[in-house]
Amino acid sequence: MSTRPSNTTMHIGELAERTSLSLRTIRHYDEVGLLPATARTEGGFRVYSEDDFERLTVIKAMKPLGFSLEEMAEILSILRSHEGAVAGTEAAGRRDDILERAIHQRAKMARNLAQADEFIQTLSRST
């Protein structure tokens, strides 16, 4: 978690640097409504909050698991509703489905990584 006060703001460049994401990616997430800027300066520059940083961190974690932008928006909504109150039965069921999918995708990634490691070892032995 971050140690910055929750009321601090940052421009897109700082957010990009803190998350190791490109400006283009963050702008895209803004344009599709996944990560709208908290505010804009008088000059029209995006301003983000610490909550936006936390939200982007979750988005970044979902990306390698293969979730679509629409699914990411749904997941963020489920997570937000779960934090604010007890999630309804339907939301809890959907959250469980998403968790199961994430676990499955992670296991698949681990298998792929193991195969890549085997290939690297094969190449290393052949030199």
Rank of each mutant, 00 (worst) to 15 (best):
M1K: 10
M1V: 12
T3C: 06
T3R: 13
T3G: 14
R4Y: 11
P5E: 14
N7L: 07
N7K: 13
N7V: 11
T8M: 15
T9Y: 10
T9F: 11
H11Y: 12
H11C: 09
H11D: 05
E14S: 15
L15R: 10
E17V: 09
S22G: 14
L23W: 07
T25M: 11
I26D: 01
R27T: 10
R27K: 04
H28P: 05
Y29K: 01
D30T: 00
E31M: 06
L34D: 00
L35K: 00
A37I: 02
T38H: 14
A39S: 13
R40Q: 11
T41V: 09
E42R: 10
G43K: 10
G44R: 05
G44P: 05
G44F: 09
G44T: 08
F45P: 04
F45N: 06
F45V: 00
F45D: 09
V47C: 04
V47A: 06
Y48A: 03
Y48P: 04
Y48Q: 02
Y48N: 02
E50D: 08
D51W: 01
D51Q: 13
D52N: 15
F53D: 01
F53E: 05
R55W: 00
L56W: 00
T57P: 02
I59N: 02
K60Y: 01
K60F: 00
K60S: 09
A61T: 10
M62F: 15
P64I: 00
L65Y: 12
G66K: 10
G66H: 07
F67D: 05
S68H: 07
S68E: 02
L69P: 05
M72I: 13
M72N: 07
A73V: 04
E74P: 11
I75R: 03
S77M: 10
I78T: 13
L79Y: 07
R80K: 14
S81T: 13
H82D: 14
H82N: 11
H82I: 07
H82M: 12
G84P: 01
G84V: 07
A87E: 00
A87F: 08
G88V: 08
G88T: 14
T89H: 08
E90W: 00
E90A: 14
A91H: 06
A92T: 12
G93W: 01
R95C: 09
R95W: 15
D96C: 06
I98V: 15
E100L: 08
I103L: 15
I103G: 02
H104W: 06
A107K: 08
K108N: 14
K108F: 10
M109S: 09
M109N: 13
M109H: 13
N112E: 13
N112W: 04
L113H: 13
A114G: 06
Q115E: 15
Q115R: 15
Q115S: 14
A116L: 11
D117K: 04
I120V: 14
I120R: 01
Q121V: 06
L123D: 06
R125F: 02
T127S: 04
T127L: 11
T127Q: 08
T127C: 09
